[in-house]
Amino acid sequence: MTAIAKKSRKGKYKLAKTGPLMMIALPGIIYLLINNYLPMFGVFLAFKDYSYMRGIFGSKWCGLDNFEFLFATKDAWIMTRNTLLYNAAFIVLGTVCSIFLAILIYELGEKRRVKIFQGSLMLPNLLSWVVVGFIVYAFLNADTGFVNNTILKATGGAPVSWYSTPGPWPWILILVYLWKFMGTNSIIYVSTIAGIDKSIFEAAQLDGASKWKQIMLITVPMLKSTVITLTLMSIGRIFYSDFGLFYQVPQNSGRLFDVTQTIDTYVYRGLMELNDVGMSAAAALYQSLVGFILVVAANALVRKIDSENALF
């Protein structure tokens, strides 16, 4: 082994390395091949007029018919707009808030409190959307909800029937999203900060840099590559939305559709009765495809500016 390593340093540096590295990756590759790639024959469904009797391969081809419903009405514009804008908000606000939390948690520097805060902030992530829907309802329902009954009463505000007032919902949904995921997501950044070479901070401290300056000039820039990686991954899924957040939390209230309808909820509502296998496959393929194009473009852009941080 030693001989190979030495030889490789001289000339065929990369070639010699492929084997062992591949071996390490192999178990993972096999798993992905089986779990993710093999079932991909399912995408054919998007182009089929599905018949249970004939099965996936026997069913008749129907061209792009299954995709038509995604673009047929002006709802197409609303749901696409909502999906994109919410995801953009989640990416930006989610990242900022998670980093903020992570820095605070990291700077505590005391184990017991780190434990308590981190543990508590993670709990919302364990609740199902149905339950989250109940909680939000407890706050916002018109007759017995907290906001109307306690807060607005105390401040003398007029009661609002929240579930038929679209205006505040973008904020409510963003708040619920942050509440549910911020704590868990911050953990990624805590661990990234933990990986920063501590001597950099020490040097900065010796130079008299304040804590604030250290954070802004060292910690935040060091998170750049993690932020880029996570953002690129989010862009890949930018046409998807968290169904529960947009369906259960607004209690499926029709008055709110203009601000709560996303591609996923539209597809769900539209196919509830039809139960069409081909059309739901088409919707998923459409969502993936757009995400794929966007992420390849974004990745190319990143590669151009900062090749180190490109995803692939």
């Binding site: 038509e68 047929a72 709802d75 539209y266 509502r269 539209g270």
Partner: peptide, 18 residues
């Protein structure tokens, strides 16, 4: 008429309950 069906179902969900 599946396409019309999905669109119409969504409109009904939006208006009918209220």
């Amino acid at each position: 008429v599946k396409t019309a069906y999905t669109a119409v179902t969504n409109v009904i969900e939006q208006y009918l309950p209220a």
